[in-house]
Structure formats: C-alpha cells, structure tokens
Amino acid sequence: MTGWPEGIRCTLMRGGTSKGAYFLAEDLPADPADRDDLLLRVMGSPDPRQIDGLGGAHPLTSKVALVSVSADPRADVDYLFLQVGVEEPVVSDRQNCGNLLAGVGPFAVERALVTAGEPQTSVRVRMLNTGDLAVATFPTPGGRIAVTGEAGISGVPGTAAPVLIEFPRGGGPLLPTGNPRDVVAGTEVTCVDNGMPTVLIPATALDVTGHEAPKDLEEAQALAGRLREIRLAAGRLMGLGDVEHTTVPKLSLLAPPRDGGAVATRTFIPVRCHTSIGVLGAASVAAGLRVRGGVGEGIAQLPPTGGRLRIEHPTGFLDVETDVAYGADGRPSASRTAVVRTARKIFDGTVFPRPADRSFRPFRS
C-alpha cells in the first residue's frame, strides 16, 4: 500500500470533562463491525498510549459521538455514543455519555443538521444507546455559536459558553431492582438509573474514606477485587446481564461532603477512578440520594427542599438540579434533571486511520 489511507472528516471536541471524536454517522461504515474496526484505528487502540491515533490514553479521552438527523418527531438529531477501549480492541455502545452530549448540539449546528436560532438554540437529542431524550440549549448570538462565556465547570480550566442540558423523565424505573437498598456481594448498595446505571456504595463499607486520590484507589488491589465482585453481581441484579466486558453499571463511592456540597464521590469506569464524574452518573447519584431509605441516608447532606444538589468529586463539583416524586404505587421517579456543561471545538478536519490490521477484529460489548 502506498500513500496515505483514505481520510474521514472529523471534529475533535471537549464535551464537559471528556474529549472525543465527533462524526456524522453517514461518514462511517454502516456495518457495526467495520465501523468499530475503523474507530479503533482512528483512536489508536489497542495501545496504552494510543500513540498512533487521536485517543488520549484514558477512557475519558477515548470516546466517539456519531450524530445524524433524527427520524423521531420528538428529536432533531440522533446521538450514538461509543466508548473505545484503550488497551483492548473493544468498542462499546452499552452506555450514554452526558459529557460528550454537551457538544452534540453545537456540532449539529456547525454541520448544518440544525439551523441556529437567535439569541440561543435548543437542540432536541435522541440518545440512541438508551432511547432517552435530552434538550441542549446554548447561546447563538447572531446565529453563530458562542465561543466564549462565563460558565466554569470543575475539571476544565477557564470558562466558556454554557450548555444547559435538560432530561425529561425517563421511561425506565429509577430503581431497577425495585428496592431502595440491596445487599450485593455482602455490601449494602442502592442501584439507581437516572440516565446511567449506577451502584451507590458507602465508601466506609469498602474500608476506604471516599476522599482518597483516584490514583491511590486504583492501586488498592483489595478494593479492586471487591468492586469487581459488586459490579458483576449488581449488573445481573439490575437486568444488565453479564457486565464483564462492559463499562456499566458505574460504581460510585459515597462519603460525607468536605466542601459544602451534598456528598463526596469517587466513581469507577469500571476499574479506572474518574478524575471527576460523568454527567449522567452525577444525575443518577443525585436522584439516588433523594430516594427514601437509600444508602445515602446518613452520608449526604441534603437541602430541606428539592432542587440543586452539588456533587463533589476529586477535582471539584458538579451541580445537578433534580427532583424525585413518588407515584401512587409508591415507586420513585426523577421528575426533572438538568445540568450545565460547556463544550469547545478543538479541531475540525480530516483524520487518517492507521492501515487495517486483519490479525484481530474488535470485540463488541
């Protein structure tokens, strides 16, 4: 083979506290296996440094967003999130990513899938991973996407234009097991899904404080074994089946807040400790804290009325507006969830994947 491989138009964006490659779905192969093989070569996987691709050697920077015009009358665009493995040839569509979601609306406007409004634009997004809906609203003065603004989020230097993301009430149960508490692998937990299947665990139940640095938690071998045991058992209990090769459910350790928030968290994806917290993971934590009888009782410090909860994480905090209501059947549901994120276009151009290696095929999960 001579010359460069065929290039693909790509936009690299930071969305919230993640970074990923955004593509129009029509620019990639329709066959999932061929698409995943291509994305592994684009991101430089499998390789711990992802030295030969766009990936940043961490799950938070090895992500892909596929965007297309939606056929659903409730949405303007469809968004498929793909988590690309770093050290393994794995591409997973088993979860959403609320951080990359922050960039979907601006990307859709830039690629002319949606016409910008004045002074702001709202883009209705259908998240294909779960079928859930979201509305992203961001400033577009003069019909152009605002590049600067005063919104700051922990884990990202500086400020930028805000992207308000609102999630309507989901169709699935907030408590997938039907219980505010379950005993999983000998540990009391709360299994919750407010956009992201998440297992809430009191940090002290795993013999840690929940305030440790992510690196220290990752190096604790005994903790890793306990977390794996809980995740595999909780996955089955939550109706997710065998989660050995998936990144859901997330595991969030809960500890008393230290900086004026509602709770301190340490979240695993699935074995790497998140340096902050995902948007949908935080939404699930916030809703789970409002469930009567959940494991957050006695740990979290909640305001007397509903509304905004500040979720502390290793590099700061994430504010989530959430309310939980109980129906006539006594089951809780999240009646409203909203967060503010920011996004920034880093480059828009052509990415050249490394040549195909037929010695392996990607493992899909």
Rank of each mutant, 00 (worst) to 15 (best):
V351E: 11
V64S: 09
H313I: 04
P139K: 08
V42N: 01
T350D: 06
R290V: 03
S92M: 04
E297A: 15
P168S: 12
V104P: 04
E6S: 12
P270W: 02
E219S: 15
L60Y: 14
G85D: 04
L133A: 13
T2F: 12
L174C: 10
I299K: 04
P5Q: 04
A234W: 09
R341Q: 11
G172S: 07
V263Q: 05
A328N: 13
A33W: 00
V163T: 07
L289C: 06
G210F: 07
A33V: 11
F317C: 09
I299C: 00
G186F: 10
P29V: 03
A205R: 12
I145N: 03
E150G: 10
E297R: 13
A222S: 11
E166C: 10
A71N: 06
G56F: 13
G178E: 00
G316N: 07
P332R: 01
L39K: 07
A65T: 04
P257D: 06
V125A: 00
R74V: 06
A334L: 07
V320G: 09
T137K: 14
S122G: 09
G170L: 13
P355D: 09
D182R: 03
D216L: 11
T115W: 02
P73Q: 10
I145H: 04
P256M: 01
P180K: 03
I299M: 00
P139T: 09
G98W: 08
L318D: 08
A233S: 10
V64C: 09
N179T: 13
F23N: 09
T187R: 03
D72A: 03
G281C: 08
L60V: 12
R290M: 00
D259V: 03
L82Y: 08
F352L: 15
V90W: 03
C97L: 02
A234V: 02
D348R: 13
V86A: 04
L237Y: 08
F352K: 14
L12T: 11
P304I: 05
P270K: 13
F23V: 01
S333W: 14
S18D: 07
C10P: 13
V147Y: 11
I145Q: 03
G210L: 01
V104D: 08
R94C: 13
P139I: 08
D207V: 12
A25Y: 03
T148K: 09
S276D: 09
V147I: 10
S68F: 00
Y79R: 01
I269Q: 13
P162F: 00
G281K: 12
L101R: 06
N129T: 04
A57S: 15
L289E: 08
S18V: 06
A262E: 06
R144I: 01
G171Q: 14
T2N: 14
R231Y: 02
N179A: 14
R354A: 13
M1V: 11
A65C: 01
S359A: 11
L100C: 09
V184N: 00
D72Q: 05
F138G: 04
G171P: 00
A220W: 09
R258H: 05
G143T: 07
A205F: 12
L237N: 11
A325D: 15
E219R: 15
G85F: 02
D78S: 00
A57P: 12
V263F: 10
V192N: 05
T247W: 03
V199Y: 01
T187L: 00
N99D: 11
R144E: 13
V114G: 03
S68A: 15
